[in-house]
Design a protein around this nucleic acid. Structure first.
Length: 571
DNA sequence: GCCGTTTTCGGCCCGACTGTTTTCAGTCG
């Protein structure tokens, strides 16, 4: 049983209670519990198995703990089953439509018999929404737009697409005279792996002129809201972008407020309340008097806290650490000294060895490991033992001709379904860098997968586990294994875990980075490049590492070439 | 339903915008 399944039960209970109009705080408790469970790196099932008291977890009390035990046993719980009898099964889907909340979902069901997204679409297209109490023509149009957005983006876009949009929007804002300065906030500033919408703060010289300029941006397809405080637009790509106008004296407070996360903000505000202070998007106040607001640093300071990097603002212990002065000094892009996972045209890459080396040198790297596929990955023309030996020879020939640059002969070897490696161990032992990955039999039961990975880790020839969860965001679920056992094996064997920077992998995920760091494992941030331009994906891996609380010292490829060669040398 | 250096009851973050109605509820972040 995965934590996400337990979280889904709690979220569904919360959604149904919302539509039924139950106590708002009770509803929040379910969503809070869902978040706690969903964020946990340890599997709840294992914690229960180890006899841990679940009520020690934030937001989990006696009632939630009992429900978790029920869910582990049966996949559901009596509370959810009872609630489900009171509403049609897909009614909660309506809440995913922007502009539709629990109250309207209830009205749509009770007054118009709408029970699903399909029925909602049909009713809106037939002009049957207008006329329902509290809803007019505009609401009907907004529902249709909301349905289009939902279908186009499935609610969220990837971090890479978001980064590209932020770059082009920033360029537009930069060229607007009515805007003095701006800052992207929201989940993008926290570098979440997927983004719901984009948020910009704008300090305007002239708000009306700034709003006009924003609405003139070529990719704006639709205006969602336009007031004195904010402008909201929908881009042609379906993504919503909010621009909020703020004054210089409140800029820092607004940055904090709109960067979030929601959970982080709530915890900060409670903290302010205890001191008899009020924290909102305009500043930190004692009564009417603003104590801070201009910069984030001064607001945090006035709260008795060190400035917290945006990537950590998820209410995962960062506020406590900021109070104690124990925040990590997060790794930065410039700390990366080389890439240890790239492919060439020997398998499924597009570049030659020489081209990949030149691209790495152009990025200021000291070293590069060529890691082509092994034979099991037939679609990638993976190499067999003899081919791998010859490929390593070619890599070393190339290395011999390089000055002040270290080229490592490596491999991304498949972990076969029984945990054996796809190439002869003598061949692997002769390589400088061995990254082992799962590329098949993703659906194995957890105990089988755990043994499979532990066997690979204990082979004695592996340096690193590539994209450990083998997930593709939005496309393929992570494989299931006991992370504690796998991490413990890595610790024992000195094997690293990869943070794969490929935007739809971002694997190891952030919460596991944090856990791995606590255990004392070393991570490797790699691009898994298949062409020279892919080397620039490194940034996304660094973002994941930062969200996972990693410092420079936690990441192998921050070492110099000399240090890394010493570190990976076989004894 | 959760929680506690104001603890076992009584709170629980808070402001802006839209659409529809006629003073505000619903939704969002």
């Amino acid at each position: 049983m995965e934590n996400s399944q337990i979280a889904a039960v709690f979220d569904e209970i919360g959604d149904i209670l919302e539509i039924l109009g139950e106590n708002a705080f009770r509803i929040r408790s379910y969503h809070n519990a869902a978040r706690t469970v969903g964020d946990l790196p340890d599997r709840i099932e294992d914690l229960v198995g180890a006899g841990k008291d679940l009520t020690e977890l934030p937001g989990i009390g006696e009632s939630m703990a009992e429900k978790i035990r029920d869910i582990l046993k049966s996949g559901t719980c009596p509370t959810l089953e009872d609630l489900r009898k009171r509403l049609p099964p897909h009614l909660t889907d309506l809440l995913m439509v922007k502009g539709l909340g629990p109250k309207r979902a209830k009205i749509l069901y009770e007054k118009a018999g709408i029970k699903s997204l399909d029925e909602l679409k049909a009713a809106a297209e037939a002009g049957k929404i207008r006329g329902i109490e509290g809803m007019g023509e505009k609401t009907e149009q907004n529902i249709l737009k909301g349905l289009v957005t939902l279908a186009a983006t499935a609610g969220r876009i990837g971090i890479k697409q978001a980064a590209e949009l932020v770059a082009t929007i920033s360029k537009h804002l930069d060229g607007t005279k009515a805007i003095r300065r701006f800052q992207v906030t929201g989940s993008f500033r926290r570098r979440r792996e997927t983004i719901g919408d984009l948020d910009f703060l704008v300090e305007a010289v002239d708000r009306a002129a700034a709003a006009k300029a924003i609405l003139a941006y070529e990719s704006v397809e639709d205006t969602i809201a336009s007031g004195a405080e904010k402008v909201s637009v929908q881009l042609a790509s379906g993504v919503q972008v909010d621009f909020r106008f703020v004054e210089a004296a409140e800029f820092g407070a607004a940055e904090m407020y709109f960067t979030g996360s929601k959970a982080h903000n709530i915890t900060l505000r409670k903290r302010a309340q205890k001191e008899d202070l009020k924290l909102n998007e305009y500043g930190l106040f004692r009564g009417e008097k603003r104590l801070a607001g201009k910069t984030e640093e001064e607001v945090f300071k006035a709260l008795g806290l060190a400035w917290i990097p945006p990537e950590l603002r998820e209410d995962r212990g960062e506020i406590e650490a900021a109070e104690k002065g124990t925040l990590p000094k997060l790794i930065e892009r410039s700390d990366i000294k080389g890439d240890l996972h790239v492919h060439t045209d020997a398998t499924d890459g597009a570049g030659t060895i020489e081209e990949m080396v030149a691209a790495a040198q152009a990025r200021g790297y000291q070293y590069l490991a060529i890691t082509d596929h092994s034979k099991a990955v037939t679609v990638a023309h993976g190499l067999n033992d003899a081919q791998m030996r010859r490929h390593a020879d070619r890599i070393r020939e190339c290395a011999a001709g390089l000055k002040k640059f270290t080229l490592l002969a490596g491999v991304e070897v498949d972990i076969l379904k029984d945990g054996r490696l796809d190439l002869d161990e003598k061949v692997l032992a002769g390589l400088d860098w061995v990254c082992a990955s799962v590329h098949s039999y993703f659906e194995q039961p957890e105990d089988v997968m755990t043994s499979r990975m532990v066997a690979a880790i204990k082979s004695g020839v592996v340096h690193c586990i590539g994209h450990p969860f083998a997930r593709l965001i939005g496309k393929r679920d992570p494989i299931r294994f006991d992370a504690e056992k796998v991490f413990a094996a890595c610790k024992e064997q000195g094997v690293c875990l990869e943070i794969n920077s490929w935007p739809d992998r971002l694997d190891l995920p952030d919460v596991y980075c944090k856990r791995a760091r606590e255990i004392g494992l070393t991570m490797v941030i790699s691009t898994d490049s298949h062409k020279t331009a892919d080397l620039d994906l490194m940034e996304y891996g660094v973002w994941v590492a930062r969200r996972g609380w990693l410092e420079k010292a936690d990441v192998l490829n921050t070492l110099s070439a000399a240090a890394i060669e010493k570190r990976i040398k076989r004894t």
